[in-house]
């Protein structure tokens, strides 16, 4: 009976983790940015664009796990690339959105990301 309780407990915990989409750590993205921008990146981009992501191509393009440590020119290039992808509606990938419509960026989210990236790259340029 005790064993069953443990298993049940684990099940509930993993279900809760799955529902909130976190693995216990509150901060996925350590790069400094406004909270509302971070929420969008964490919910819609972080899943593939971090060290644990399954696709190497995604990590090569943009990796939130290492972004903070890059020099300013690599940061500018990474962010600028991300802006182009979002602006051109190439990200999140159409294939993913087809399977998981909730993964798509809304018009507002997309504009928010693009505007923030523009501000961020200009301020990086002047640092």
């Amino acid at each position: 009976m005790k064993r069953l309780n443990v298993i049940l407990g684990l099940l509930v915990m993993s279900a809760a983790t799955y529902a909130t989409g976190t693995k216990g750590d509150d901060q996925k993205i350590t790069y400094s940015m406004p909270e509302q921008v971070k929420v969008v990146f964490e919910n819609k981009c972080f899943g593939c664009h971090n060290d644990e992501g399954r696709s190497d191509k995604a990590k090569e393009g943009l990796n939130f796990s290492t972004l903070k440590q890059l020099d300013k020119f690599k940061k500018i290039a990474s962010w600028n690339e991300a802006r182009k992808e979002v602006e051109g509606a190439k990200m999140p990938p159409a294939k993913l959105v087809e399977k998981h419509p909730e993964a798509a960026l809304t018009q507002e989210e997309s504009e928010l990301l693009v505007e923030w990236i523009k501000t961020e790259t200009s301020s990086l340029l002047k640092q």
Partner: peptide, 11 residues
């Protein structure tokens, strides 16, 4: 523009 130039050079 300068930001795109820096990105192009990085590419």
């Amino acid at each position: 523009n300068p930001i795109d130039q820096i990105s192009a050079l990085e590419d």
